[in-house]
């Protein structure tokens, strides 16, 4: 987490937020809440602090509780800081049938963390998730906007290595480009 970073969108992001709001009829700006929360999570280090949520409330001119209610409902929003790479391993039927347990255990052992924990260097957080719609390429994990599919422990080793070398925060949103 960057120190003393002001909780405020950059002018570019704010412009995108305004563009998103314009997608909904007048007076229905609350519709933009989830897309704008994605912008906020991308901009504010991968999680949504109370300050970040209150800021989003102010951007949309809605009450903070309306933001808290939504953020805590959806599983992609993090209300606590997470590692740079949030490893979201699918564990539902099709993935389980093809070895997701092995993938989860391998990550636990290799990174020495339990599900829900972050490595000491702040690089990785392990999370188990429910079906990500990648059943034909199971087992799989999602990290930011990337699906890593047909995983084996070998593939996993090289993937984690690459992530370490890259040392960048992975985000769901990769670009702010929106259609007109």
């Amino acid at each position: 987490m960057a120190e003393n970073k002001a909780i405020e969108f950059s002018s570019d992001t704010l412009a995108v937020a305004k563009k998103i709001i314009a997608r909904y009829p007048e007076g229905k700006h609350k519709s933009a809440l989830i897309p704008i929360l994605h912008l906020a999570q991308t901009e504010f280090d991968g999680w949504l602090s109370v300050e970040a949520m209150d800021y989003v409330a102010s951007v949309l001119n809605i009450k903070p509780i309306e933001v808290y209610e939504v953020v805590t409902f959806y599983s992609m929003f993090n209300t606590k800081p997470v590692g740079k790479c949030l490893l979201e391993v699918c564990q539902t039927s099709s993935c389980w049938l093809r070895g997701s347990d092995e993938i989860i255990n391998h990550i636990k052992k290799k990174l020495n963390i339990e599900v829900g924990e972050t490595t000491a260097d702040g690089m990785f957080t392990l999370k188990t998730v429910e079906c990500l719609g990648s059943c034909g390429t199971a087992p799989m994990l999602q990290c930011g906007g990337d699906f890593h599919e047909n995983l084996t422990t070998e593939k996993l080793d090289s993937l984690l290595e690459k992530m370490k070398i890259k040392n960048e925060r992975s985000t769901y949103l990769k670009s702010l480009n929106l259609s007109s």
Binding site: P64, I65, Y68, E69, T72, F73
Partner: peptide
């Protein structure tokens, strides 16, 4: 309104967050 329903499923709760 400053309180509401937070979280989801059997973890849902009434709270001010």
């Amino acid at each position: 309104r400053v309180h509401g329903v937070l979280n989801r499923g059997d973890h849902s709760e009434i709270s001010t967050y």
